[in-house]
Simulated scan of single mutants.
Amino acid sequence: MYDPNSASAASGGRMGGRAFSSQSSSSSLSGSRGYSTRSASPGFSYSAPYYAPTPFGGGGFYMGPAFGVGVGAGSSLFLILMGFAAFMLVSGFLSDRSEGSVLTATGKTSVLKLQVGLLGMARSLQRDLNRIAENADTSTPEGLSYVLAETTLALLRHPDYCISAYSSADVKRSIEDGEKRFNQLSIEERGKFDEETLVNVNSIKRQSTTSQRASGFSNEYIVITILVAAEGVHKLPTINGSKDLKEALQKLGSIPASRIMAVEVLWTPQSENDTLSERELLGDYPLLRPL
Rank of each mutant, 00 (worst) to 15 (best):
D3G: 07
P4V: 10
N5K: 13
N5D: 11
N5E: 14
A7V: 06
A9T: 05
G13H: 05
M15K: 07
M15P: 02
G16D: 06
G16H: 01
G16C: 07
A19L: 13
S21M: 08
S26W: 10
G34K: 13
G43S: 07
F44Q: 07
F44P: 02
Y50N: 09
Y51F: 05
A52H: 11
A52F: 03
P53D: 13
F56N: 08
G57Q: 05
G58W: 08
G60H: 12
F61I: 02
M63S: 10
M63A: 11
P65A: 13
G68W: 04
G72N: 08
G74D: 14
S76Q: 09
S76N: 11
F78W: 08
F78S: 11
L79Q: 12
L81Y: 11
G83S: 11
A85G: 02
F87W: 14
L89A: 15
L89P: 00
V90E: 06
S91V: 10
D96A: 13
S98V: 03
S98Y: 07
E99D: 15
E99K: 10
G100W: 01
L103I: 14
A105K: 10
A105L: 06
G107N: 12
S110D: 06
K113V: 03
L114V: 08
Q115G: 11
Q115E: 15
L118S: 04
L118H: 00
M121H: 15
R127I: 14
L129P: 04
L129H: 04
N135H: 09
E142F: 04
L144M: 08
S145F: 06
S145I: 06
V147N: 00
A149I: 12
E150I: 01
L153A: 15
A154D: 03
L155I: 07
L156G: 04
H158P: 00
H158W: 09
I163H: 04
S164Y: 04
S164H: 03
Y166Q: 05
S168N: 12
D170Q: 08
I175Q: 07
D177R: 11
G178D: 01
K180Y: 07
F182Q: 02
L185H: 08
L185K: 12
S186Q: 10
S186T: 07
I187S: 14
R190P: 00
G191Y: 05
E195G: 12
E196L: 15
T197S: 05
T197Q: 02
N200G: 11
V201R: 02
K205W: 06
R206M: 05
R213P: 00
R213I: 15
A214G: 15
A214H: 12
A214R: 14
S218D: 09
E220R: 13
Y221T: 02
V223T: 04
T225Y: 01
G241Q: 08
K243C: 01
K243R: 15
K243M: 08
K243F: 04
E247C: 07
L249P: 00
S254Q: 12
R259L: 07
R259W: 05
I260T: 03
L266Y: 02
T268D: 06
E278K: 13
E278S: 11
E280F: 10
L281T: 07
D284L: 15
P286K: 05
R289H: 14
